[in-house]
Amino acid sequence: MSKAIFLDRDGVINDNTKKHVNKPKDLIIYDGVGDALKKAVEAGYELFIVTNQGGIEMGHLTHEQLQDIHHKMEEELRPYCSFKEIKYCPDFKRVSECRKPKPGMILELTEKYDINLKDSWMIGDMDTDVEAGIAAGCRTAKIGVKNKLADVNGANLSEIIDKILKNS
């Protein structure tokens, strides 16, 4: 069994504070993300993206546009790491098992890749990310405003990864 880090995308990998990321040109990766993810890979973690993308259901972007955004993200981060898989939930209004805080995306990847959840982490910037990680059975980390239920809290992905590796 392997260990993994499940990462939310918006607010963790890239900045979405000024504009929703609906086109590749809107994707602005935070400074330090590549180096932080490289450290995680070197420590033996497989990387996955698990992201709510309700903009698809809302009509703000298509599945194809989202694939283009993810392709840009992967290309920019390729010198540092690669993602085992990028999973997204296109739902917004409809009841869905994949939309966080439900753990559907994490559990599906766990089964597919034989991941040990007890040695794995969900990192996000929203309370729903923490809730999804807890529901899945992995440890959790929250970026930004502190969440008392998270195992680790920090200002950005670099700080979170350093804390995870220190506690491993």
Rank of each mutant, 00 (worst) to 15 (best):
M58C: 13
M58K: 15
M58T: 11
M58R: 15
M58Q: 10
G59Y: 00
G59D: 01
G59V: 01
H60Y: 11
H60K: 03
H60C: 00
L61A: 12
L61Q: 04
T62C: 10
T62W: 00
H63T: 04
H63M: 08
E64H: 11
E64P: 06
E64S: 13
E64K: 12
Q65L: 09
Q65Y: 02
L66C: 03
L66E: 06
L66N: 07
L66G: 01
Q67A: 15
Q67C: 10
Q67E: 15
D68H: 05
D68I: 00
D68E: 13
D68W: 00
D68T: 02
I69C: 09
I69S: 02
I69M: 08
H70D: 08
H70T: 13
H70F: 11
H71C: 04
H71F: 04
H71K: 15
K72N: 09
K72V: 07
K72D: 05
M73P: 03
M73T: 08
E74W: 03
E74A: 12
E74V: 12
E75T: 06
E75H: 04
E75C: 07
E75L: 08
E75A: 07
E75G: 05
E75M: 09
E75Y: 11
E76D: 12
E76A: 11
E76R: 13
E76M: 09
L77M: 14
L77K: 12
L77R: 12
L77P: 14
L77N: 10
L77E: 11
L77T: 09
L77Y: 11
L77D: 10
R78G: 00
R78E: 13
R78H: 07
P79E: 13
Y80L: 06
Y80G: 03
Y80Q: 11
Y80T: 02
Y80A: 08
C81L: 13
C81P: 08
C81E: 06
S82C: 07
S82R: 11
S82M: 14
F83N: 11
F83W: 10
F83T: 12
F83G: 05
F83R: 12
K84G: 04
K84P: 10
K84R: 15
K84H: 06
K84V: 06
E85A: 15
E85M: 14
E85D: 15
I86K: 02
K87D: 04
K87W: 04
K87G: 11
K87S: 04
Y88Q: 00
Y88R: 00
Y88P: 05
C89F: 02
C89Y: 06
C89S: 03
C89K: 05
C89E: 01
C89Q: 03
C89L: 04
P90E: 01
P90V: 00
P90Q: 07
P90L: 01
P90S: 09
P90W: 06
P90T: 02
D91P: 03
D91H: 14
D91T: 01
D91G: 00
D91M: 02
F92G: 05
K93F: 01
